[in-house]
Write a protein that binds this DNA or RNA. Structure first.
Ligand code: ZN
Length: 834
DNA sequence: AGCACGCCGACT
DNA sequence: GTCGGCGTGCTC
């Protein structure tokens, strides 16, 4: 009997077998606690019979994209939180009982009966149900789906059909001598030998419509018939275990010294621990503190946050049964990291991460549910853990973007943590060296208590940070003129024959570092999708007059546009408006820097790590391991390299494309850049081996960069908050981004016109409401199409959350019926709008 | 999102 | 003829 299998499967098993599950729902606390509400509930249920038509009517949340719940008939009362098997349409699904149905039924509705109750005790506690309800409303996501995502993933993976190249097909592709072969190359790309069948259908159709490069188009059918490809039933892919997962869980016995006389705390640490402990003090009856308190722990890199966490957890453990949750960005969730806690708290730490198999994850969470584990360490989804008595939630690196889920239910683990803390009356500690503007503003406004640890306690000195100003434009890009405004590969090359993208001083430093037997990290941006126009005179990107974010420019086009508000202008116009200025089209990320490194440092062993690879559980650990072993001299990669990993032999970190990062078309560009520099500074060197950080920029006097050099968070935050306030961005407003996407561009554009009309109507019909909410777009996002689907975004923002919700909800309802194949995505508090 | 129904063009 | 692709409607 495997508990992680779908309920449908185990429902067919005899009852005794089910008993082995611990006869428990997932979120249950204990049998004792649950049965009392169950009895009270039964009483209430029967009383209802006197009141009205709700007898035996049970409200059930069903996992479906429909934004509503359903009413079923139940023979006996079903306490809220129980999972139930119900008929739904022509299938059977697992829903969650919510309570007696309150809503009036439409006349003539034929109710169906619940088929089975799947739990002996509720899977979802009252508190967890309350969290689910809040999430459902706040993130505008159906309750049934929210409840489903809260449970650990079941291993049912949909077997999708695949289209695979046959050996003949592979041959035809590499030869590319036939039109079929050429078409296969377009369809599959150069290396892949299989792709999803659905994607193949769509892509082949698109290629046929595009009247492509001379080569004929074929239908998938034709290709199958000629034996070049075969349709295959997709195998159910099982998440592969990360190698590190097998790291010995029970560590070797520790000497008392090792295990743990806690290190002497510095005053700032002591003070933080004391303040938070006050909030942890349990009330008389043994339940957690009477009131939840949120702390923002702002500690510079090396200020000893981990030790503070550990001591707080120790405090929690003093109370029988009390538990603690430590949320960590996915990327930092390494065995090295968890071992620190496992050593200090042997046997009672549970760890979950996304690379685990479902069984392993289920088992870890089971330990939390049973109370045998008292500490849970995990990424954002761990915030839904099945705690009995959660007394403390720690959110490490609270500013980290990985706490935000970007697809489906777009929740932010940090924000849910704050809510859960409130509902569970647990203390919440948000820790960071560079707090998010949201949390910092909450602290300034007194909603969170700010605790500061400005002092470094670890032996590692701050590295030397140098700005390398670029006197030349350093290969930034092409100078645009009215008559040749297009950024084009040829121009770029012609222009840069003697203008390399990396300053010789940096190349020299890299070479010296290698000769000294040390390693280096070079941080670049992800390879580019667009350009911005850099004014040499103003030393900044040409911004949108409405939104103050950089205007973007695409290759082979001279149209500059704002992807927030859809403001448009042309390069010619900008050039004409700024006589005497030099304007440069700069790509946000490029291959150039890497190529230059390889060319100028032929002896160095250089490897590139793209952030796309994070998704790939195989590559990332392998490369990092190689780097750790010293088989790589220079690791070139995106921001992820600055996070989480400690490489003791890295003494030099180079940040090459700071200007591009600063000018990303996103109101958080500055915040991200600041975080990157501070993080990098925290990673270079170690106690006996001082590190160095080099920053190449065309604008050496940039106050943001200067503040980062000084680790002056407050200075940076003050100016950043000023910017946010002036332009009505978060944290001074809330934002909801709605994306529509679909394969037919004209259809999407028609829809956009309707959306504009809707806005006009709102302004007329409800002027008061409309005045409170800023609506930008529909506009074209910087990445216009993803996997053949065109995209448009509408951004709602307001300082009045109620008004924002009302307007967004009205909008979503108005466009509830979408044209064929068009999908709508809602992102509440979007983390990135690209 | 599933799932079924019904319509239509194209391949045995 | 029928098989598969695709738009449409429904889910207590
Ligand atoms: Zn704009």
């Amino acid at each position: 009997m495997k508990p992680y299998e779908s309920p449908e499967k185990y429902m067919t098993l005899p009852r005794q077998a089910r008993g082995k599950l611990g006869s428990g729902g997932f979120f249950q606390h204990s049998t004792f606690i649950v049965w009392i509400p169950a009895l009270a509930y039964a009483l209430a249920f029967s009383l209802r019979t006197f009141q009205g038509p709700v007898v035996n009517h049970l409200e059930v949340a069903v996992p479906t994209p429909l934004a509503r719940t359903f009413t079923y008939l139940a023979d006996s009362p079903v306490p809220p939180g129980m999972r139930v098997l119900v008929p739904f349409g022509r299938r059977r699904v697992v829903g969650v009982a919510l309570g007696p149905a309150q809503a009036e039924l439409e006349a003539g509705t034929q109710l169906k009966k619940i088929e089975k109750i799947l739990d002996d005790t509720p899977s979802y506690s009252e508190t967890v149900l309350a969290i689910a309800r809040w999430i459902s409303t706040y993130y505008m996501h159906p309750l049934g789906e929210v409840l489903r995502t809260m449970l650990p993933a079941s291993s049912e993976k949909v077997a999708k059909d695949l289209l695979a190249l046959t050996p003949e097909g592979e041959q035809a592709r590499s030869a590319a001598s036939t039109s079929e072969g050429q078409f296969l190359k377009l369809l599959f790309g150069k290396k892949k030998t299989e792709m999803s069948y659905g994607a193949a259908l769509g892509k082949s159709k698109r290629l046929a419509g595009e009247a492509t490069i001379g080569s004929d188009a074929f239908t998938v059918r034709q290709l199958v018939k000629s034996g070049l490809v075969v349709k295959r039933r997709g195998s159910t892919m099982r998440a592969r275990e990360m190698q590190t997962e097998e790291v010995e869980r029970a560590p070797e016995p520790l000497s008392p010294a090792q295990r743990g006389v806690a290190p002497e705390l510095r005053p700032a640490q002591r003070q933080a621990v004391d303040r938070i402990c006050q909030a942890l003090r349990p009330t008389r009856d043994g339940s957690p503190a009477a009131e939840s308190k949120v702390f923002l722990l702002h500690g510079v890199t090396g200020s000893g946050k981990t030790e503070v966490y550990i001591q707080l957890i120790e405090e929690v453990l003093k109370e029988s049964g009390h538990q603690a949750l430590l949320l960590v960005p996915e990327i930092s969730l390494t065995p090295q990291m968890t071992q620190v806690f496992e050593r200090r708290f042997p046997g009672i730490v549970a760890v979950v991460h996304s690379a685990m198999t479902d069984i392993a994850r289920w088992q870890e969470l089971q330990r939390i549910r049973a109370g045998t584990a008292r500490i849970l360490i995990g990424p954002r989804s761990a915030v839904f853990g099945p705690f009995g008595k959660l007394a403390l939630i720690l959110v490490d690196e609270e500013h980290d973007g990985s706490y935000k889920q970007s697809t489906g239910l777009t929740y932010n683990g940090r924000d849910v943590a704050v809510l859960r803390g409130k509902l569970e009356k647990a203390a919440v500690v948000l820790g960071s060296a560079t707090p998010s503007m949201e949390s910092y503003q909450n602290a300034l406004a007194g909603r969170y208590e700010l605790l500061e640890m400005p002092e470094r306690v670890t032996g590692r000195p701050l590295p030397e940070i140098n700005i390398i100003p670029c006197e030349k434009k350093r290969g930034l890009g092409t100078v645009v003129k009215a008559h040749s405004a297009r950024p084009h590969a040829d121009d770029v090359q012609a222009d840069e024959r003697d203008d390399i993208p990396i300053d010789p001083k940096i190349l020299e430093a890299l070479e010296q570092n290698r000769l000294a037997g040390r390693q280096a990290i070079v941080l670049v941006n992800r390879r580019g999708y667009a350009y911005y126009l850099f004014s040499l005179q103003e030393r900044q990107a040409v911004p949108c007059p409405n939104c103050s974010i950089s205007l973007t420019l695409h290759a082979r086009s001279t149209v500059l546009r704002c992807h927030y508000c859809d403001y448009k202008t042309t390069v010619e116009r900008i050039v004409a408006e700024r006589p005497g200025d030099t304007l440069i089209a700069v790509g946000y990320g490029s291959q150039k820097a890497e190529d230059c490194l390889a060319a100028k440092l032929p002896k160095a062993r250089i490897t590139r790590l793209d952030s796309d690879i994070v998704v790939d559980r195989e590559v990332l650990p392998k490369v990092l391991e190689k780097f750790r072993r010293g088989d790589i001299d220079i690791l070139v990669g995106t921001q992820i390299l600055a996070k989480g990993h400690d490489f003791p032999n890295v003494t030099l970190i180079v940040i090459l494309e700071v200007d591009q990062l600063l000018n990303l078309p996103d109101f958080r560009a500055g915040e991200r850049t600041f975080q990157l520099i501070v993080q990098a500074a925290g990673r270079a060197g170690r106690a006996d081996l001082p590190g160095k950080v080099l920053i190449q920029t065309v604008r050496a006097e940039n106050p943001l960069v200067l503040a980062a050099l000084e680790q002056d968070y407050k200075g940076f935050a003050a100016s950043e908050l000023k910017f946010r306030r002036a332009h009505e961005y978060p944290p001074f407003t809330r934002m909801i981004a709605i994306e529509i996407n679909g394969p037919h561009k004209p259809r999407l554009e028609t829809l956009c016109t309707q959306m504009e009309r809707w806005q006009d109507e709102l302004a007329v019909k409800q002027p008061n409401l409309a005045a409170k909410v800023r609506i930008l777009g529909p506009s074209v996002p910087p990445i216009e199409t993803i996997r053949g689907r065109h995209r448009r975004t509408v951004i709602f923002s307001s300082g009045d959350l109620q008004a924002l919700r009302t307007v967004s909800q009205a909008f979503v309802t108005a466009f509830g019926k979408l044209p064929p194949k068009v999908r709508l995505r809602i992102d509440v508090d979007p983390q990135s709008l690209i």
